[in-house]
């Protein structure tokens, strides 16, 4: 056996062994800041409380509501079906798959808009597309869905249509119109998260 073959064999096995010794590299893929900036300017990431309420009432399976407030606040009141991931833990690896689901819109909300927006900023850096924010947060949720205010008599008819929907939604979500205490604890939903399937790239032989 010639020296050349021995050298090649050692080289191959050696370099393959080197692969096993490489330290684990965490998958911290992030999009460049300029791309993120464009995403931040895109107002389409805001959903109104009415849109979200409608999708919950319709039992839309493609939404995943994330409550970024503290667990104690979440216990006190949460939108039905919402899942609690406090903002301080939002980057934990255990939530990685929850926040990155194909075909599921992940919607962040907090009391206002700011915390949800911060959660969005952090997660959007991973290049995930279907991330949204509930505009106005729970304050807006209470003002529109739980305790809707009747429009002025001179308001356009759309406002009345909207009010009709809000009143109906209010009954659905156990708001004042149904005569139920607004702060009734929401049913918490068990979330089944499927591992993200790899998309096949185009092409092949």
């Amino acid at each position: 056996m010639s020296k050349r073959y021995i050298f090649l064999a050692v080289l191959l096995i050696g370099s393959a062994f080197g692969l096993t010794q490489l330290p684990e590299k965490p998958n911290k893929k992030q999009i460049p800041p300029d791309e993120l900036l464009i995403k931040i300017y895109d107002q389409a990431r805001y959903l109104t409380t009415r849109e979200i309420a409608k999708r919950i009432i319709d039992r839309d399976p493609s939404i995943f509501l994330v409550d970024v407030r503290t667990p104690s606040e979440y216990e006190e009141y949460a939108i039905p079906g919402a899942f609690n991931i406090p903002l301080e833990n939002i980057l934990d690896d255990q939530w990685r798959d929850y926040l990155n689901q194909d075909g599921v819109d992940v919607i962040f909300y907090s009391n206002g808009t700011i915390y949800a927006d911060q959660a969005w900023d952090l997660i959007a850096q991973r290049g995930i597309k279907n991330l949204y924010i509930m505009k106005g947060g729970l304050n807006e949720w209470f003002a529109t869905i739980i305790k809707p205010v009747a429009p002025d008599e001179t308001a356009p008819s759309e406002a009345f249509d909207q009010y009709a929907f809000e009143k109906a939604a209010s009954i659905y979500f156990g708001g004042s119109s149904a005569g139920v205490d607004a702060a009734a604890p929401a049913e918490k939903k068990e979330v089944v998260v499927r591992k993200k399937k790899k998309k096949a790239a185009e092409g092949g032989c």
């Binding site: 064999a9 191959l12 096995i13 393959a16 692969l19 010794q21």
Partner: peptide, 16 residues
Amino acid sequence: GWFAFGFAVVAVAVFF
């Protein structure tokens, strides 16, 4: 990495 290593060992064995 370990798969590549195993494959390398098998390949060199096959060559031999």
